[in-house]
């Protein structure tokens, strides 16, 4: 009972998953109202610069340091229909690979103009866009010291809790992707590619900002693995 396009919960190459995943397979049950409903977030929770990580933590209007990029794309369901009003939260390391977080042990300098988070809501055609700087790769303890590929964390709320998703966008061409155990916890090699933001030169402009395109698909109500369900559930 494995969704091959979703990562394995217990994937020993990613060491902390060994003690942080259940030993029993989760129980497949029919969803109830609690899964097909969910919170809806109104655009009036947003400030003007919430989708601009280059400026939203700025001191005195100074920009965050690093290669400036746009990340944009569409959020759709499995049938390709656009999903509007999806709240997206993003967070990332600074250009040197350092997070603004008390538990980040890195001795890389923080950027005083960079907080590292943003949020925005998809438009009626499912579109989102935000501006940020390209995050740095960084080492972390796993099987010895390993390197995370450059990535941006994404959190999405669809219209029902079934669709709730936290994932990461990687950057096209980053050689660290291939050896990343978190990426490789996804059995389906083609599905891994869905996490790679593609360089999008059509989005670059005279502001000297490079573009990346990252589309996201949220699941629907279909119980994809119904045939594996335990009798009587």
């Amino acid at each position: 009972m494995i969704k091959k396009h979703q990562p394995l919960r217990k994937f020993p190459d990613y060491k902390s998953s060994i003690i942080r995943s259940p030993d029993n397979e989760p129980l497949l049950i029919n969803f109830s109202n609690s899964e097909i409903t969910g919170p809806l977030f109104n655009k009036n929770i947003l400030n003007e610069n919430d989708n601009n990580l280059i400026l939203n933590f700025s001191k005195n209007g100074e920009k965050a340091l690093g290669q400036e990029i746009f990340v944009h794309g569409f959020v759709k369901d499995e049938n390709g229909s656009p999903l509007k009003d999806v709240l997206i939260e993003v967070w990332q390391a600074n250009a040197g690979g350092k997070y603004r977080h008390q538990n980040d042990p890195s001795n890389i300098k923080l950027d005083e103009n960079f907080g590292g988070c943003g949020r925005f809501i998809t438009s009626s055609d499912g579109y989102y866009i935000f501006k940020t700087i390209e995050p740095g790769a960084y080492p972390y303890p796993n099987r010895g010291v390993e390197w995370r590929p450059k990535h941006i964390h994404f959190s999405l709320f669809g219209s029902m809790f079934l669709q709730r998703l936290i994932t990461q966008m990687y950057f096209e061409g980053d050689p660290l992707i291939e050896s990343c155990p978190m990426v490789n916890s996804i059995p389906d090699i083609n599905a891994r590619k869905l996490l790679v933001g593609k360089l999008d030169l059509s989005k670059t402009d005279e502001e000297r900002i490079l573009g990346y395109r990252f589309d996201i698909i949220l699941r629907g109500k279909q119980q994809t693995y119904f045939e594996n369900k335990i009798e009587g559930s």
């Binding site: 008390q102 538990n103 907080g115 964390h153 959190s155 936290i166 994932t167 629907g220």
Partner: peptide, 26 residues
């Protein structure tokens, strides 16, 4: 389905920055 839903990835140890930023001091 026409499209595969985007795979999940871990929220990581620094999820506070994006989800509860005030706890990260932001």
């Amino acid at each position: 389905q026409k499209f595969t839903d985007t795979p999940s990835q871990t929220a990581g140890p620094f999820l506070h920055i994006g989800c509860t930023p005030s706890i990260a001091g932001i």
